[in-house]
């Protein structure tokens, strides 16, 4: 066991963590919102004003 191996295990661990995070968030999101809302995006809506924002803005302003 050397330092590089530690780094390798760290990389595996972090990958698993990030993957798990995405998976859990995906499942939670799918359960929280209706499928109708989630797939409500339409092509060709150039005007942002037509779209009513859901409660969250995701940290973007």
């Amino acid at each position: 066991m050397n330092n590089f191996q530690l780094l390798e295990y760290g990389a595996w661990g972090l990958s698993a963590l990030l993957g798990l995070w995405m998976l859990i968030d995906l499942i939670r999101t799918d359960k929280t919102y209706s499928e109708e809302l989630l797939t409500s995006s339409k092509e060709g809506e150039i005007e942002d004003a037509l779209v009513i924002d859901p409660p969250h803005q995701g940290g973007h302003l």
């Binding site: 929280t32 209706s34 109708e36 809302l37 989630l38 779209v51 859901p54």
Partner: peptide, 9 residues
């Protein structure tokens, strides 16, 4: 949360 009529993401 359910989609209000016309609400879109």
């Amino acid at each position: 949360t359910t989609a209000v009529h016309g609400e879109r993401i």
